[in-house]
Every structure is written in C-alpha cells, then in structure tokens.
Nucleic acid binder design. Structure first.
Length: 280
DNA sequence: AAACAGGCCTAAA
DNA sequence: TTTAGGCCTGTT
C-alpha cells in the first residue's frame, strides 16, 4: 500500500479490496451517502470526508492528521482482506460469496454510534434507519462545516442521557427511543464502559451488552463487530438465518470460520441481500 | 392498502 | 426452553 498526502486529500494505491459502493451499502453503516458523481460523503468521529475510487487509486479527503487519526483505522486499511477471503473459502458457496463481495471491509465505527444505529435498526429497513440516524444527528449533534456544507457529529451520550422520550419524538424512532436513552445513561453512569471491552473474552463482552434493554444477541453482535471491531462476532438476523439454512449444514457453527467469522458473515449477508434485490 | 420490516420484551406453556 | 403477540412508524 502506498499512501500519498496531497494537501487536502490522501491518495492510496496498491491496496486491494476497497470498493466504496460495497463498503458503504452493505448495511454496516448509515451515515454515508452516495453523491451524483458516484463519490460518497459521510461523517465519523466528528470528521466528514469524501471517498472516491478512480481506477485502482482511492482518494479520501482530508489532511495527514485526519487520515492518521481517523480514516486509516476506520477503513481498516492495514488489514489484508484479500488473504482473509482466501482463508474463508471453505466450500463452493463461500468461494462465490467472497468473490462476489470482494472489496468489502468492516468499518471501525464508534462503539456508541454503532450501538445506537443497531438499536434503531430493529424491525426496520435501511431507508428508515438512515432517516432516524440523520434526524438524531441533526437534532442533537454538534454542527461543523466541510467543503462549504453543514454536517453534524454523532450526538454524544452525555447529551442524550439528559433527554426524555418526548425530546426524541422528532426523530421518529418509535419504541426504540427508550433503548437509546437507557444506553446513554448506562455509559454516562458508568454501568457500561467500552474501554473495558478490549480485555474481555467475547462471550463476556456479549453478556455485558445484553444486560441493556433493547440489546439482544443480534444487536450485541453488531455492536461488537461494527463498533468494537471484534471480527469474530457473527450477527445472525433473519437474512443470515435464511442463508445459513440454505447453504450450510443444520449444526454448522460459525465459530469454525475462526477469528474472522464476522467478515465471513458480511460476505454472506451481502451476497444474500444483493441477490434478493436483483430478484425483485 | 395492508402487510411487513436487518429485533426485543413479556407472558405463557 | 420455546413460542406468540405487541410494539412505533414508514416503506413497499
């Protein structure tokens, strides 16, 4: 991988497995939007960026500071997804799923943002989840400017912890509002501490999260995978259930994918979702 | 237009 | 331990 700092943008070459469209539209994140010119603009860690790919070169806006502070780890750039794909090719279904999903990466999102996003996601569709997250950010996040446009940082838990369900009505998240409030209060009250998670065994981490109202197995695994970047976490939603039932043995244990089971999950999920979209 | 949505909670067997 | 119904509100 070669990285060049060109003032207000970073140019990356010699990096495999980076397809913006797949990364941003595979359902792992809700704050990146496709522009008319095919680029993506999004917000993470209080920074905005524009991402585009031209040929084999990837451009991420921002200076060296932002790149090293945020984007390098956010996009998981130092991980070799090409060899991980090879590692996950157990059987013909996985071979085709990893080929189809080549270019995906698991973003390292802020844990609190991932927690809120996947609390909002339950019994919901992506269009609506994005709407809720956007209104949530615009109502309660700090504004800043990027390339002349106004954007909003994801709201801090301290701010949210002081709100009531009534205050959250404008974002129209329905019954999920109370879950986000109690999550914010768990964090600010010291009942939950994401910093402690790096030391925990996977199962213990999961149990910690499941204590919170509105967090079940699926949401907990999403927080672990997308927020805490625990790549062995394997969220199973209705789509994954279908895929597993169709293409794997009854008693198949996702843990047999090994330390990158969560990445396997993303290839499988992307595969079944995209094929379903095509079939409509 | 009415069913259904990337789940979770509670009550009941 | 497993199962059904309800939950807010929009999208399809």
């Amino acid at each position: 991988m070669k990285i060049e700092f060109l003032g207000n943008k970073v140019k990356i070459t010699g990096l495999s497995d980076f397809e913006p469209e797949k990364i941003f539209e595979c359902g792992q994140c809700f704050r990146w939007n496709r522009q008319d010119d095919g680029t993506y603009i999004g917000v993470a860690y209080g920074f905005a960026a524009c991402v585009r790919k031209e040929g084999q070169a990837i451009f991420i806006s921002g200076d060296q500071n932002a790149f090293e502070a945020v984007w390098r780890s956010y996009f998981d750039l130092d991980r070799d997804y090409e060899s991980i794909r090879g590692e996950l090719n157990i059987g013909s279904y996985m071979r085709s799923a990893t080929r189809f999903g080549a270019g995906l990466r698991i973003l390292k999102q802020e844990p609190w943002e991932a927690m809120c996003s996947f609390l909002f996601s339950q019994c919901n569709n992506i269009a609506r989840i994005k709407g809720i997250v956007q209104r949530f950010s615009e109502e309660f996040g700090d504004p800043f400017y990027f390339e002349g446009e106004k954007y909003y940082a994801f709201p801090r838990p301290e701010r949210i912890s002081r709100l009531t369900e009534k205050d959250l009505e404008p974002i129209r998240s329905g019954y999920r509002a109370k879950y986000v409030l109690s999550a914010a209060r768990a964090l600010t009250g010291g009942l939950l501490d994401f910093d402690a998670f790096s030391l925990m065994e996977p199962e213990q981490a999961r149990q910690e999260l499941i204590r919170l109202p509105g967090v079940g197995n699926k949401v907990a695994d999403c927080i672990l995978l997308y927020g805490l970047h625990k790549l062995d976490a394997f969220p199973v939603d209705v789509w994954m259930k279908r895929a597993l039932a169709e293409h794997f043995e009854k008693d198949f244990d996702p843990a047999s994918f090994g330390e990158h089971a969560g990445i396997a999950q993303q290839y499988i999920f992307y595969n079944i979702r995209e094929n379903y979209k095509k079939a409509i």
